[in-house]
Design a protein around this nucleic acid. Sequence first.
RNA 1: GGCUCCGUAGCUUAAUUGGAUAGAGCACCUGACUACGGAUCAGGAGGUUGCAGGUUCGAAUCCUGCCGGAGUCACCA
Length: 631
Amino acid sequence: MPKNNKFAPQEKTGYPIMNIIEIIQQGVIKGIKSLYGADITAEQVTMNSTRKEFEGDYTVVVFPFARLARKKPDQIAEELGEYLVREVAPVEKYNVIKGFLNLSLSEVFWRGFLSGMYQDEAYGRQPANGQKVMVEFASPNTNKPLHLGHIRNILLGWSSSRILEAAGYEVVRVQIVNDRGIAICKSMLAWQQYGQGATPASAGEKGDHFVGDYYVLFEKKLREEYKGWQQSEEARELFEKKAENGQGEEAFFNSFKNTYFNEYSRLGAGAKDMLLRWEAGDEATVSLWKQMNDWVYQGFDETYRRLGVEFDKLYFESDTYLLGKDAIRKGLEKGVFYQKEDGSVWIDLTGANLDHKLVLRSDGTSVYMTQDIGTAQKRYQDFGVDKMVYVVADEQNYHFQVLFEILKRLGEPYADGLHHLSYGMVDLPTGKMKSREGTVVDADDLIAEVVEEARKNTADRDTVSGLSEEEQEAVIRQIALAALKFFIIKVQPRRRMVFDPKESVDLQGQTGPYVQNAYVRVQSVLRKGGEQDLSPAADYNRIEPQEKEMLNMLHAFPGLIQVAAEEYDPSGIANFCYDLAKAYHRFYHDLSILSADTAAAKAFRLQLSQAVANVLQHGMNLLGIEMPERM
RNA sequence: GGCUCCGUAGCUUAAUUGGAUAGAGCACCUGACUACGGAUCAGGAGGUUGCAGGUUCGAAUCCUGCCGGAGUCACCA
């Protein structure tokens, strides 16, 4: 194989390989000018890949030129087609159907394109652009294990960060860990009262689940306590006095629950007291808090490891929850904020189609927004990033609109680079996930489940029987995670999605393993015939439609990465990988590779196979999905 | 109620951002290896893109109004 000139086309096309679309667009612009004397911009030249039921590679839509040329679309298309064939070298043929101009590129062009890229593992990756972007994702609370919702978040965050890297950015991956507050105090109190010194090790349980169990236990004990209290004199009197007209006992006590926790409950008082002592820095409390959080982190780390993600830096809310007050003070001086008589500080965002928003309470303490302002500033100080992406569910859309507007008005240097990667909640076929009803899908359980399913399906295959047990286990894990990840990532983020556990473990059809299988097929072919000289590919002169389809897709891949990065949307990459895998499966079925008719065909198809495998691996890698060599 | 997002085949979802006959997968039916891996391929059936108007050569996509669903409008996080 010609290793030393991988980027150079083997045949002279007369044009750089990558910009064929732009070249055609320029040709169209010149053509319109010379044929009709009109000036148009590249923007006005709409080009698509030709639909596969028609002949051609690219299609120019000529309707928009009808007015300029004062001719019928069909006639324009004819004239323009003739012009392009004459003036733009790679364009070899054209045909016109109903006002659409279909252009076919020469085989010379396609051979040159393929031979130039098929060994390039970095094909599609943009050179560094000198910009730095921070991606925040995961960001769990430390009182409960991760669940399906976190998985969607993590997969989106991870794949987006990979895609941004491929688009040329330097990426910093962070999360903010919500490690403080009343929730973790509930777990702490429950552990203190009922735990009898148990540890994750002694209980044989993962740390995050261990701590989560105490949170659940707290809620259970609280409910019991509340139920008992409802029989008391005090409760009866309150019910008589405060129940609204016609309000039943049950309805009343349901709505009273919060007040009960805050004002009557022994456990509630205990948890709140715990929080106060934590805030005061009480040593015993702080050390218990550290201990429990440590357990949780060990559990989280394990889950992240299973998912194959990692972070460059963790921010902890216990460090950041007091940040932002300075910014408020400065903003107040600059007149960005205003103060009410009671001392609370606000911002008027009605000009930006938003509302008035509180940024500091009357007692001078922070709210969520205050922290987020401070944290953004801190992150900029820490890393000097040009952009920040927040992967957070769509219930916080309004919050981020407000946050970004505030940062803009404060004149933050990164304010134009802020993006909320908002995604819809994950529903189950039975409806919403509700922790109270125990319908939350636990992340670790889910992973274990898909691995089991993959194991069952791998058991009776001799394709992997030659591998060691360890290697087999790795393959099973790769397949399982591919199924799970692909299932989630293929859906556009903004959509609320239905997660059917049964479908997520499917290994057939539009799935991760289907894509892996295409890759594995290529590897199998290459093992048998990849060691040869592929230069005869230059003589291949009858590119089949199945081959052309893949060449077109391969050519589109770099642009797709760009779009995915600009839109912060990995779903397009997933769907592309599926389409490419499908095209390869068809090609593989219809045409012979190793026993092709000619040496040229064989060499060309081996190049093509290798190119497809590279791009599939690269594309799936952007989604955080690994490719096995056998499966 | 105000604002935002979403309604596409029975189910899960695409549609190159206004382009050609709305494309896949699952499930259902029928077929395909003495061939490079059948976790595959081919075919069938399944659609008034929630409804009604409008904009134009052309609308799932843009505008208006309804209908249905979700989220959000805290000195909560």
